[in-house]
Design a protein around this nucleic acid. Structure first.
Lengths: 208, 208
DNA sequence: ATAAAAATGGGTTGTCCAATCCAGAATCTG
DNA sequence: CAGATTCTGGATTGGACAACCCATTTTTAT
């Protein structure tokens, strides 16, 4: 019963019910992003979502199940936001645009918050295996999107290195850069980390 | 009174007192590393340190002050462990040895725990400005150690790129690699992230 | 040796929060 | 439109934990 049957519900919900559920997840995601999982109390979530009483327990068995829904939600949000840029990751120009957008976004946030998946993942990694796997799976999807672009470059014969390795290294550089940017409250770490990685990729390009 | 006078004590402690204090910090560091700051209760720390009752409050004003001591402690621990390798960071061979040692260490830990500074930093970044600064300062010291090696390469005319940028990017790659390694429970992310970065550095080397 | 200072142990308090219950209202389905 | 189901609101409970207090013992300095 442990690994099975998580989030068994999600069905049989009225339109209004689905809407309420979504509002709870969104509010929880925001609060957990701002304060961390343990600091975000269900009372806060309740108030922020504009629901009352035992509503949260009506839709989620416990805080854990809500947390898993939040990780899923944040993964979708992160990937959705970058979706328009993923298609371009098969040229250096597109990669630079992607980099610029990430840097720009952090600037708008004043370097606060870090990566929604990374922050959650780091917090739960050692105490919550289920949540750890959920975060890891989110990163796998992200990595896939990056790999897709590099793979197309490789297939066109424009890249002279393993796309798998480069994609993973790029995601790592992004995450590390984000963490340092978050802690220092300046974008330079993110800029430098991504630039180094993209320069490294560029060094392995050749015109087809 | 906010930014001033943190950890005003530390003096006027008997040898036995210093020993007890150190034991508390070490136990707290271990527990916070394993479970996170909020999940590590002072009761746990008390038991793990083998002290009793209000001992923790005898040495620390509150949990916050203990946390700051822990961040300091972990910074020292992380830097101490790498100290023998820092001297060699001015050659590619030394950099590779450093990489190998980090990977080796993660393997011994079965990819658990992540970076002691990074995990703490990520957890406190948005809720605890003082702790955020302490973690950021720890990373600055780490970055300095890496920069030192690259700067010597540069000064010898063997490096054809900004040592400051490379050092920061290397630390970012390391942190991102560690996070992904921790979440996936396999060393490959750390290996690939560091290898990409070291390859990038090597591409900018030339014999003097 | 003795007084002062530091260290220890146990017990207590107040708060916060996850989780549960129940009764009533809204919404869906046949 | 009527019965069933889903949704909602408020109130409560039980446990955990940070923080505090005080009496006693040990250590340090004179």
């Amino acid at each position: 019963m442990s690994t099975q049957a998580r989030q068994p519900a999600e069905k049989k919900l009225t339109r209004k019910g689905q809407e309420t559920r979504r509002r709870i997840v969104a509010a929880a995601a925001q609060l957990m992003y701002e304060r961390g999982v343990t600091e975000a109390t269900l009372e806060d979530v309740r108030a922020a979502a504009g629901v009352s009483g035992s509503q949260i327990y009506h839709y989620f068995a416990d805080k854990q199940e809500l947390l898993l829904a939040v990780i899923e939600f944040q993964t979708e949000a992160v990937l959705d936001m970058q979706k328009p840029l993923f298609a371009g990751l098969d040229t250096m120009e597109g990669l630079r645009q992607w980099r610029d957008a990430l840097v720009e976004y952090q600037l708008r946030l004043q370097c606060r918050g870090g990566c929604p998946i990374g922050s959650l993942g780091s917090e739960v990694a050692e105490t919550n295996p289920e949540a750890r796997l959920a975060a890891a799976s989110g990163f796998l999807r992200w990595e896939s999107a990056i790999r897709g672009g590099l793979q197309r470059m490789y297939d066109r014969g424009e890249l002279d290195a393993d796309p798998d390795d480069l994609a993973l290294a790029t995601l790592a550089a992004l995450q590390g850069g984000l963490l340092l940017t978050q802690l220092q409250r300046q974008v330079r770490p993110l800029e430098v980390a991504l630039d180094s990685m993209l320069d490294h990729i560029e060094a392995h390009t050749r015109q087809a």
